[in-house]
Amino acid sequence: MSSTAELQKGVIKEEKTEIVVKVKRFSKERGEWWQEYKLAVDRFTQITEVLRRIRSEQDPSLSYRAACHMAVCGSCAMKINGAPRLACKTLALDLVKRYNDNVITLEPMDRFPVVKDLITDMTEFYDKMYSVKPRLYPSPQVLEDKAQHRLRPEDQRLLWKYAQCIWCGLCVSSCPAVRIDEKFLGPAAHAKGFRFLADPRDTIQEERMKILLDSAWRCTYCYMCFEVCPREIEPVEAIKLTRTYTPPEGMSEVSRMGEKHTDAIKESITKSGKLMEAYVYGKAYGAGAIRDFVYFLASGRGKYLLVREKPVNNISEVKKLMGEAK
């Protein structure tokens, strides 16, 4: 009998390490609790495989989502040792090494309501993705097959970077701006929105700007999305690029303020080579800033406003860089 089994006999015996997996569990009936599992893993064991083995060999009731095990389907987003990650893209022993601890904790993603164990309700995430009209609206000639698209390779490359979002939700789960500002669409929707905004084949650019521009100025540039994205989409970069678009008609209050803020920073740097916060604040918020200044003075910290910012020594160099040299 020479079956595939026999061929498998020479398998390298990988050294196994015992790990403890602590899972934060939840069910509607029982509420929340922590449960521990022990199992042996080798250096290539993914967390998805850890979960599969727990479910198959120890506790069939453990609930989680997982599908492709190669970081393209976006199912297995969760908090691993406190950090938002894809379970499939995380190797158990890498964590053991990095944290110098053989205990690994698994929790559901932040921000989204927990449904069962590691499964969260992502309805709000999906709704925001749909709100950016995530589809190409080509010209009628193309749809009727009277004309064909061409796309420059460099455009394809730029768009593809943002089209690779796998809707996993990790960026949104870790985004502080989404948490406090319900009008902010969030990093994933912005990456998706920009992918179509910048597509030369699309025909509804004006509408897209209406959807995206106001929201783009609500991002705080904290770079958490940049940090956690398992596909290295860099959603914050899409937001930056979106801000460079000029809206077809009147700007929203937020984007007007945003642009004034940017201008004020530029002016501050050009003048002094420094970022003068009080100056920028006054410039960007204009009359609205007066009230804040009054409060500030009243709090007895007025001297900070009075500090005169001297220009840096080589200010002429700075002006040259800023394109203002005479």
Binding site: L136, P138, D145, H149, R150, R152, P153
Partner: peptide, 18 residues
């Protein structure tokens, strides 16, 4: 493939855009 292209699929391109 042409339908998918029309719907926005970002196929890799030749230098001439096809």
């Amino acid at each position: 493939v042409e339908i998918m292209e029309r719907w926005g699929a970002l196929f890799n391109r030749q230098p001439d855009g096809r």
